[in-house]
């Protein structure tokens, strides 16, 4: 029962909180640049306004273009409901597998890439091409990090990995964890299109990856896409926090108080990570597209080291 309540609460927190997270990150960035910024609530205002505007179907596009935002947001929602952010007792145990989560996130990206291609504009195709290239290069790192994390537990089920970490917090401070954490951190940045991989606030089409795919979307479609991007960021940051700093997550048999506590802790952890990410971005410039593979190859090496460490240090 707590599992179900926790999962529902978690989805609500992710859904409501992700625009706030994006707003917070923009605010922090603005403050560090000496500006005031638009306030944490601004992202929600943007979404509300987008929902009131009309959606547009450009000539020559079809069902793929229309369905892409739904699939993207749908995968984000499903992922938000299965990852153990608040409770490890997900009612959808059969989906709460790290491989499945990674694949679902990839499915969302693929949907958006196809939506970009369906417009037939040069920018749509360019964004799609870049997105799937990055996706292909990110995948090995994700799966190897999953591998490294699963060795100690003997399972890739997220609930079990996090439960084990909750019960044995000191194991988190091991070379395996650290290496995997760095690798997954890089992956998170790449997957969510943050600096130095992609610049979420760029206005130059030629430097875009994510933005280039969504240039044709308007109104509610665009609202879904932006909201889904926010949810992916929230979930990935929450997951990172859950895997490497699992304190506070409600495990089996926890009462309602624990769930509420877990919610508070989750919000705190994600806010801290988001703030850190936003602050870090101020110090960096976006990498050239063809330098990104080097970054990802580096993270792949770290993940490989993590797996090796998990065997030889075990």
């Amino acid at each position: 029962m707590t599992g179900l309540v926790g999962a529902v609460a978690q989805v609500v927190v992710v859904a409501v909180g992700s625009p706030l997270l994006v707003g917070l990150m923009r605010k922090i960035r603005a403050r560090l640049e000496g500006r005031v910024g638009a306030g944490v609530l601004q992202t929600w205002r943007d979404l509300r306004k987008l929902c009131r505007k009309e959606a547009i179907s450009p000539h020559g596009t079809g069902w793929v273009f229309r369905m892409a935002p739904l699939v993207l947001a749908g995968t984000a929602l499903v992922v938000a409901s299965v990852v153990p952010l608040v409770t490890t007792q997900s009612p959808m145990d059969g989906v709460a597998d790290l491989f499945a989560v990674a694949a679902l996130l990839a499915l969302g990206s693929v949907a958006l890439a196809l939506g970009g291609l369906d417009t037939g504009t040069a920018f749509g195709g360019m964004g799609a091409s870049r997105e799937v290239t990055l996706l292909a290069l990110v995948e090995p790192t994700i799966l190897l990090s999953v591998f490294a994390l699963s060795v100690r537990v003997g399972s890739t089920n997220l609930g079990e990995i996090v439960t084990a970490a909750v019960h044995d917090p000191m194991a988190v401070i091991s070379p395996v964890s650290l290496l995997a954490a760095v690798a997954l951190g890089v992956v998170t940045i790449a997957e969510t299109g943050r600096i130095p991989v992609d610049n979420p606030s760029t206005h130059l089409e030629l430097t875009m990856i994510h933005e280039a795919m969504v240039l044709e979307y308007a109104g509610p479609d665009l609202a879904l896409i932006e909201w889904a991007s926010g949810m992916r960021l929230f979930v990935l940051l929450g997951l990172l926090a859950g895997l490497f700093a699992p304190w506070g997550i409600a495990t089996a048999g926890a009462g309602p108080v624990a769930v509420v506590l877990a919610l508070v802790v989750l919000v705190f952890k994600v806010a801290v990570l988001g703030a850190g990410l936003a602050a870090g971005e101020v110090f960096m410039a976006k990498l050239r597209l063809f330098r990104i593979p080097e970054l990802l190859a580096g993270s792949f090496m770290l993940a490989l080291l993590a797996v090796a460490a998990s065997y030889f240090l075990a």
Binding site: R35, A38, K49, E216, Y217
Partner: peptide, 21 residues
């Protein structure tokens, strides 16, 4: 820019007219 910071009032420049109001 930083001095006048129009963004704080909820205005933002975007890349595509589809995203614009």
């Amino acid at each position: 820019g930083p001095v006048y910071d129009a963004e704080r009032y909820g205005a933002r420049l975007v890349a595509s007219p589809r995203h614009a109001d």
